[in-house]
Simulated assay, not measured.
Amino acid sequence: MRVVFMGTPEFAVPSLRALASAHDVVLVVTRPDAVRARGKRLEPSPVKIAAEELGLEVLETSRMTPEVQDKLSAAAADVFCVAAYGCILPDTMLSMAPLGCVNVHASLLPRWRGAAPIQRAILAGDSETGVSIMRIGKGVDTGPYCAQASCSIEDKTTTELTDELAHLGADLLVKTLPALADGTLEWVEQDEAYVTHAAKVEKSEMHLDPSVTAEQNLRIVRAATDAAPARLSVGNRKLRACTACALPEEASVSVDAGFARFVSGHVYVGCADRPLELLRVKPDGKREMDASAWAAGFRELKQGVLWARD
């Protein structure tokens, strides 16, 4: 099967590799090189790097101009496969390939349509999530789906869950394409009564808060990314919470809500119900480190200091 693949971030790479091993990927479309890290240098997308390793032709674009659409049409693909490309496709492209456009979406639709389904599932405290193979339509993630696969969320971070879903989606996509080609797929229209929207996570949402439970704060830590880190202020020292854990209700450590303490080599911040232990932190302007190493030079923390939203 001739495939045009469209994707940009690391999430899309397993789908590209799986397709390349099973089909003829005639063109890879990805967004142009961009500043993707703190170094302020232009860097290629993960999909571009993988495509070049595989010896595949790459087209870099962030807009579906007439010239780009001409190149896509000339590829004479049987199907367009999309995974987190980062651009809404015009209507003219949806029927350009005989088998249409299918997308690997990182949620169990209709739950979590939109830009940040993985983070939203973690923040909401969902017990499971998954991937959906859907047909791209005119709205954002509104098309019918033909296959889904689920996994548990448990205590996974955004990074861990993204990697798991990326491979789950790649496997499901490759398994689905033969049935798409022979017309035996059953498409399920999304039930609008169960739709939830996964808007982009803003930095303002990712502040730890002593007035909420330890579990709610822990979800913020697990959902955090470099673009939207989990932050707090301890004794007026601003830092990022990189990893943490909630103490069991029967734990003997007692820290009042709104206070932080360094006890026996552990850093605890009191939440509405019980303490949260900080395991790894990144103070502003410094490298990431064990919370105990950060606290060792913070003499007042042994007696207890106030903590708050950054």
Rank of each mutant, 00 (worst) to 15 (best):
E67N: 06
G169N: 05
D209E: 09
A246C: 12
L278S: 06
V281L: 05
Q216L: 13
G297K: 11
P110H: 11
L99K: 14
P210E: 07
V82H: 00
A76K: 15
W294P: 01
A214T: 01
L165G: 02
D141P: 01
M96C: 07
R261A: 09
G86A: 02
M206T: 12
A166N: 05
G285A: 04
E60M: 14
S254M: 02
E53L: 08
R231C: 10
E192Q: 12
L172S: 07
I136F: 12
V35R: 14
H266P: 02
E52D: 14
E160K: 10
S62E: 15
E10M: 10
M206R: 03
L19R: 09
D70E: 13
D191T: 06
T159A: 12
D126Y: 14
V255C: 02
V35L: 08
D209S: 13
F80L: 15
G265S: 04
C242P: 06
I136L: 15
R299Y: 06
G297S: 12
R36S: 03
S252H: 01
G183R: 13
L218I: 03
R237I: 13
K71F: 01
R31F: 09
T158S: 04
P98C: 05
A18Q: 00
A50L: 04
N236G: 04
A308W: 06
L54H: 06
R231N: 05
S264L: 07
V79H: 03
P275F: 02
